[in-house]
């Protein structure tokens, strides 16, 4: 079944007001193009799930999309704060934001439990930390086999996962290389899956390298081809992280008005990712990845 869709159509059809939306990608493959489209469509009351909210959730929080945030590290890596997130938490601006907070390991396990179809997973983490005190979902569990006292987190099953990747075929068989984060766990845990890729490729390209497939097509509801769709984050083998933009975000976001101007110019003021891309030709060129090919492997028998 062919699942190609435009970003507009995929977000409209598959992400609804009030949904639990996981948009993963650990520094790598952050689905900015999808986030911008959700802001444009004025999606509301979302529960946003990411280990690292990053700039994309800072923008979505500022735009009023989020009711609640499920997360484990809310900063601008190597730069400092996420200011829209802080304004929401510290001052309730533009609206209060409910927090459900974990460590990376804790939130990773929640998605893994969701993907594996079990109600919880145990961990040796969390003793002595105040995190369980402020998040009652992190609770004690006794091992029925050894009697050991462990901690546990419940399965997380998002309504929808939005995941950026290098390439997929039109049926949604999706290949990723470089850092894989919790892409696979999010894809298997969620009820619906949208995959956004740099390139849609022929099924033969996928079949020639099956070990690189992270998400099978039958888990995927829509495939959106969106080159440069993860900018200012990066896509291994396609473009580098725009570290200058991450640094500039400090200045843009420190003041709510200046952030609103950014959204007006770069999100509301543009129709889609193509116009975004065309508005910054030097950046697109400057971030293009060098070629560092690996040796082919022999799948023959």
């Amino acid at each position: 079944m062919l699942k190609l869709a435009t970003m507009q159509d995929a977000m409209n059809r598959l992400v609804h007001d009030g949904d639990i939306v996981a948009m993963e990608g650990f520094t790598h493959l952050i689905p900015f193009a999808a986030g911008h489209e959700l802001i444009r469509q004025r999606r509301r009351e979302l529960t946003l799930v990411r280990l690292t909210p990053d700039l994309i959730f800072d923008q979505m929080i500022a735009a009023g999309c989020a009711r609640k945030l499920v997360f484990s590290w809310a900063g601008n890596p190597g730069v400092g704060s996420l200011h829209a997130f802080r304004r929401a938490v510290e001052h309730g601006f533009p609206r209060p934001l409910e927090l459900e907070e974990y460590s990376h390991f804790g939130l990773t396990l929640r998605l893994q439990a969701g993907a594996a179809g079990v109600p919880f997973l145990p961990t040796r983490n969390f003793a002595g930390s105040d995190l369980p005190r402020v998040n009652p979902r992190i609770c004690r569990v006794t091992c029925p086999h050894t009697g050991e006292e462990l901690w546990s987190v419940p399965a997380l099953t998002p309504d929808v996962a939005i995941l950026h990747a290098q390439r997929a075929d039109a049926e949604g068989n999706t290949q990723v290389w470089g850092l894989v984060g919790v892409h696979k766990e999010a894809a298997f845990a969620a009820r619906r899956v949208v995959v956004v890729v740099e390139e849609v490729v022929a099924p033969e390209v996928i079949r020639r390298d099956p070990n690189r497939t992270l998400i099978p097509g039958f888990r995927v509801d829509a495939v959106v081809e969106e080159p440069f769709g993860a900018h200012p984050s990066y896509v291994q083998g396609y473009y580098d992280r725009d570290n200058d933009f991450y640094a500039r975000w400090e200045e843009i976001s420190r003041d709510a008005q200046s952030l609103a101007r950014y959204l007006d110019e770069w999100v509301y003021g543009l129709a889609d990712r193509r116009t975004y891309r065309e508005k910054m030709p030097e950046t697109v060129e400057g971030l293009r990845a060098r070629q560092m090919l690996c040796a082919p492997v022999n799948y023959g028998y």
Binding site: W73, A74, G75, E90, E101, G106, R124, N125, S129, L131
Partner: peptide
């Protein structure tokens, strides 16, 4: 925690590194 003066980024991987 529920009415912070300054909200910091949070644990990331720190809690588990400290524990494990």
């Amino acid at each position: 925690y529920h009415k912070p003066t300054t909200r910091l980024p949070g644990s990331g991987g720190a809690c588990e590194i400290a524990a494990l």
